[in-house]
């Protein structure tokens, strides 16, 4: 099953990278969203897949005896999902702001921080 997942994740990554290489903000955003999912799936798969048995210790037992899904990647991914969501929201608002203020959604035309023709700094002291 991991093999199939690997291929799926590869497709996710390829799509995300292709979208992020676009010049237009919206596509970059979509790419970022897919990228986040791809990374989460990557972590999930790297911890190996076990179908349908959640990592919960049965009542009355003191330790896990059954073979269950790997809890560690799950813990990592859980927080990652929430954080990537909040960052995605931030990116979304930031893009919208940039679009509003700069009147463009083409990232190549956004040259406020790094103007195209910046004069050389003075060489005096």
């Amino acid at each position: 099953m991991e093999a199939l997942f690997s291929i799926l994740i590869g497709v996710f990554f390829a799509a995300a990278v292709y979208l992020m290489l676009s010049k237009f903000l919206v596509r970059i955003l979509l790419g970022v969203a897919i990228f986040g999912n791809a990374v989460n799936l990557l972590l999930f798969t790297a911890g190996r897949l076990v179908p349908e048995v959640p990592p919960i210790i049965a009542a009355g037992l003191d330790r896990q005896l059954a073979v269950t899904a790997n809890p560690l990647p799950q813990a990592l991914i859980l927080t990652a999902i929430v954080i990537s969501f909040s960052f995605f929201a931030f990116l979304l608002v930031l893009s919208y702001r940039a679009f509003q203020d700069l009147k463009t959604d083409n990232v190549n035309e956004m040259r406020v921080a790094e103007p195209a023709a910046e004069a050389a700094p003075p060489t005096g002291y």
Partner: peptide
């Protein structure tokens, strides 16, 4: 994009 995707796929395959 395809190189990246392929890279992740192969890497993950190798890992698993």
């Amino acid at each position: 994009a395809i190189a990246c995707g392929l890279g992740f796929s192969l890497y993950l395959l190798r890992v698993t």
